[in-house]
């Protein structure tokens, strides 16, 4: 099964829609609670990052019919992360004042993703940021 979701820049109202739909899908498939929670946390954080920091992008969800491996890909169209190492430091954030006023920008997004995913890979350039995570 594969699903692709569009995520818009600065659309805080719809932020989290992909994550909630993916969680609902996994629940329907009877995926165990621990995995559900990990996917929900990681997906939400990555989705929010696209809203806050990028010019928009997509969330791609896949679950392998045979071994049940869950794959999440997040691809945005820039402006990219200047210093990937710094961006993965707990508490470091470049979120806008608006995002912070809404409670975002704690600097825990990438940290949270890495801590719950079975595998985590991030690449970034001025053209965009790509995050790939698996869960099992």
């Amino acid at each position: 099964m594969k699903k692709v979701y569009q995520v818009e820049k600065d659309n805080y109202e719809d932020a989290g829609k992909a994550s909630t739909d993916i969680k609902r899908t996994l629940k329907t498939l009877g995926i165990e609670r621990k995995v559900l929670k990990a996917v929900a946390i990681a997906c939400y954080e990555a989705e929010i990052n696209i809203v806050i920091h990028s010019d928009g992008g997509t969330v791609t969800f896949e679950i392998d019919d045979d071994d049940g491996l869950i794959r999440l890909s997040f691809d945005d169209i820039g402006p990219g992360i200047e210093d990937l190492e710094l961006a993965q430091t707990p508490g470091y954030s470049t979120a806008s004042p608006k995002a912070r006023s809404l409670g975002f920008g704690a600097g825990m997004g990438l940290v949270n993703m890495k801590s719950v995913a079975s595998s985590f890979d991030i690449r970034s350039s001025k053209e965009g940021t790509h995050i790939y995570m698996t869960f099992q």
Partner: peptide, 30 residues
């Protein structure tokens, strides 16, 4: 701070917050 709530939240919790915009519902639902 939504990321902190996201990282620490557990099923069945009652959440006390001053955040009042739509995104708190996504977190509560997740």
């Amino acid at each position: 701070l939504l990321s902190v709530v996201m990282a620490s939240g557990k099923e069945g919790m009652l959440w006390l917050t001053v955040q009042k915009h739509l995104n708190v519902i996504a977190i509560a639902q997740l």
